[in-house]
C-alpha cells in the first residue's frame, strides 16, 4: 500500500494535485491511499515551504507546483519496490 499525501492548506492547486496524483496511481494500477494534510503544523513537519506538495510514503517528492500526471507516474515507478 502506497501512501500519497497532499500537503496544502486548501487552495485550488491542492485539489488539482490530488486529482493528478490519483490519476497517476490508478494508471499504474497501484494500491494506494490518498490523504490530504491541511493542518499547517502537520505540513511543517514535512519541512516544505511551498504548497501544494506531494509526499509519497512520507517523503516529499514535489513542492510548490502541480506536476503532470506523467511526472508523478515517473516518481511513483522510480521507487525501490519494498
Amino acid at each position: 500500500m502506497t501512501k500519497l499525501q497532499i500537503l496544502g492548506t486548501g487552495c485550488p492547486k491542492c485539489g488539482k494535485l490530488a486529482e493528478m496524483a490519483e490519476k497517476a496511481a490508478k494508471s499504474l494500477g497501484l494500491e494506494y491511499r490518498l490523504e490530504k494534510v491541511t493542518d499547517i503544523r502537520a505540513i511543517m513537519r514535512f519541512g516544505v515551504m511551498m504548497t501544494p506538495a506531494l509526499a509519497v510514503d512520507g517523503v516529499v517528492k514535489v513542492s510548490g507546483k502541480v506536476p503532470s500526471e506523467k511526472e508523478i507516474r515517473k516518481i511513483l515507478s522510480d521507487r525501490p519496490i519494498p
Binding site: 513537519r45 514535512f46 519541512g47 516544505v48 511551498m50 517523503v59 516529499v60
Partner: peptide
C-alpha cells in the same frame, strides 16, 4: 521545524 531539509528531490 521538523526536518530543516525541506523540498527534497
Amino acid at each position: 521545524g521538523g526536518t530543516a531539509e525541506g523540498g527534497a528531490a
